[in-house]
Write a protein that binds this DNA or RNA. Sequence first.
DNA 1: CCCCACGCTATTTTT
DNA 2: TAGCGTGGGG
Length: 728
Amino acid sequence: MNSINPAAADEESPAWVRALNEAQREAVFATEGPVLILAGAGTGKTRTLISRLRWILHCGLARPWEILAVTFTNKAASEMRTRARANWEENNDAPRDEMWRWIGTFHSLSLRMLRGFPEAAGLQKGFSILDGDDQARVIKEQAQLLKIDTSQHRPRTLLEMVQGWKDLALLPSQVGSTDQSRWLKGDLGEQLYERYQERLRDLNACDFADLIFHPVRVFQKETDILESWRSRFRYILVDEYQDINTAQYLWLRLLGGGHKNVCAVGDDDQSIYSWRGADIRNILRFPTDFPGTQTIRLEQNYRSQPRILRVAGKVISANTERAGKNLYSHLPEEEPVRVGGFWDDRAEAAFISGEAENLRRNGLAYSEAAVLVRITAQMRELEERFLADSLPYRVVGGLRFYERAEIRDALAYLRLARYSGDDLAFERVVNRPRRGIGETTLRHLRTAQNSTGGSLAEVGQRLLSGGGLRNPAARNLAAFLSSLEQWREHVESLPLLDAARRILEDSGYLAMWRTDKSFESAGRLENVESLIEGLSDFESMEVFLEHVSLVMEQWQGADEERVSLMTLHAAKGLEFDAVFLPGWEEGVFPHMRSREDKRDLEEERRLAYVGVTRARRHLYITYAASRRLHGRVEVQRPSSFLELLPESELAFLHDEAAPVVREGRPREAVKRSRASLAVRWRVGSRVRHEVFGAGEVRAQEGEWVSVHFADGEKTILSQYLTTGAGDV
DNA sequence: CCCCACGCTATTTTT
DNA sequence: TAGCGTGGGG
């Protein structure tokens, strides 16, 4: 039994305990039974969880390897590991790395378990892990075998479908027919899922969803395996609980089912990943799943000034599916939240660029400002403006290093050199650079493979020794296979770094980029070079490849003085003194695809909440009447989310700016053409401010015109005035 | 087998 | 706008 009394948080306690507030302490000290920490944005959620981990160690309730601490990202895991260690090393000697290996991501931890019982999951020792690209190729291949038209059903979509089922922990046979018919005719979906899994088994591989799902199924079937893993951990801690999917939920429930010392932290209001399987209902029903749960709310926000917090609170209170929290702050009240509309995305970008510069002149570092967009397409205009204004910025997120084509190519070479049976790697690089081994030759190989089995490389070898060299394709293939043999020797005999360099040089891959004269080839070469250099940190190719498949780390430059530009999703967990939220227009935010479904719309609102709560002191919410999207100018109404903002906390940008209503008449006869206009727009009942807009105009020269918006909905526009076609 | 022209479509993205 | 997949011609 826990003998530590909460009152013991006195002078005797470590400083990190004394620094906690009352609710946080409660969460830290409640060491028995299930605990749900419902923590609002900026309330010290992760800090509290880490303190709890340290407290358990501090009191000697468990040793490091008896605590299973689960996060979603490697970054969070390594932060937790470092902080837990700091404490331990003060009081214990000989800290070893293995002690902390049960602090990790869902995927890395589950993989570690799965490595212990691959056969039970139908895999063999040394199975590999597919990434998104490999998965897409496997699914495409299987879809085509099932005669599914892959131009109508794009592989990415099919993959999403199958992944969705796996995230729900559904086997092919358990996929209901209604669920299937949303995507494909009859039971094609189920068949595709089934074949995809078969193919993975043949490849002795699993995808990311399997990393969770395989252990879940094994735990459900094999009680002794489950028991041995259960008894290993005395405490389970989970960060970002609102982001778990059904499979992860089952995984946790199975592992935590014994002692029930499961502690989850999360914020239901920040659940923004439903599209990758996360289900907000998991956190909402935690107390039912784990009877006897002690629910603790962290509501004191240490991040945002009160006005920003009130705006956030108002936005999120429009949602119905939530546990409910009331955030408060003792920080001093500052300037209101600024809201403003612009003629188009260019004007909006110009404002942001200029305002970031203003803030900087007033002493705010560039790195303390961030622009958070809903969709990546919004970034382009902003970047162009920043470049033109020489405003230093950096894009956070986006294509990660290991996802770049050239890095994936280079990795495929290395994988193939190490594991010549890696067919996916084989297919990726056989003809890159061009070696005259095209689709036709590959088809021959695959057909032969179906009857004889073995890897593509083996099959190729066999075909060649049987038939001799006749056509150019066969000669080319022979050449490639013999290089492959050489590369394998390199891996065995040379130091890792030298082997890699030789392989990429001999294969002509580096030469391919050197001769390529497109403007990005130099950058690609550089990337491959830095990959090669990075190899020096690893003892063997196996270790390196394992690292790569799980740790898709961000390739980020040093922390420079730059304004951050990223999507709202990428901003979760971050904070800045000043935050700009552009693009608050119907269709962009909330996004078009989220408008029909109430649950999707609530998720968009949570996204807005996440955006608003990133800001400490200054917040700007803007929108544009027209915006270039998909290569055309789209006209959209201001976001309905704007109506949620409490007037008392806002200041309208144009109240301070030059007059914005441009009254006028069309200069020339305009017939059903796009024209510029200015509108008055109401917020709530009282506040009015001006918006530049554009719409469909029908008028003769000199006439007043009316403007019709495409959706024909009742709009919040109250007055239409034009300045004439093309007059911006 | 390779190349090019054409048409289609278009959130969010960790592991 | 751009990135991808397809289909026809060399």
